[in-house]
């Protein structure tokens, strides 16, 4: 399943500066594993050493937060857009 992945600027540094790219996966956890293979260092941006997702990073399938679907087991369908969004604090 080819999924369109979008990341904000903080994460873009580990995916060759892209804001959008494609990756394979039928559920979120598989998608993340595949992105990590393509872009080593990606996982470290969104999860801790034990693989638990950071609580300041939200993952959206289309416009829904996966915490309110099935978390890492959320099923992906062809054409879905998955966004990884870490918290921003800047205001100055």
């Amino acid at each position: 399943m080819t999924i369109k992945v979008q990341v904000t600027s903080v994460i873009q540094k580990v995916v060759n500066g892209q804001s959008e790219f494609e990756a394979e996966g039928s559920v979120i956890s598989e998608l993340i594993e595949n992105i990590e293979i393509d872009y080593p260092g990606f996982l470290q941006q969104i999860a801790d050493e034990s693989g638990e997702l950071h609580r300041f990073v939200n993952i959206y399938v289309n416009d829904e937060d996966i915490r309110f679907i099935d978390g890492k087991d959320t099923v992906l369908n062809s054409g879905d857009v998955v966004a990884f969004l870490p918290a921003l604090a800047g205001g100055l």
Binding site: V10, H54, R55, F56, P86, A87, L88, A89
Partner: peptide, 11 residues
């Protein structure tokens, strides 16, 4: 939205 802050320096 963000239950915990990032560790210092992460963002």
């Amino acid at each position: 939205l963000y239950p915990d802050p990032p560790p210092p320096g992460m963002v």
